[in-house]
Amino acid sequence: MFPFNFEWIWDMGHAVFMGGLWYALTILGIGMTYCIIKAAIDASKENGEHHH
């Protein structure tokens, strides 16, 4: 799963398979992080407006 697992080999199989997997997970991770951070910012902005 990770290059530090002892059975990891730098070959085509690992590059394609794990590459595809980590690519997908990265997109999901970045997407969710973006949503959460933006939501926090939006919410705090809204909060600020309410106070005014």
Partner: peptide, 25 residues
Amino acid sequence: VPFFHHLGHNMHEIMAVFAATGAFL
């Protein structure tokens, strides 16, 4: 809850990205 409201909204906004990843997987 404002945070959840915005979170839901933001997730809707980029749902195509998630859906595309889902289709790939």
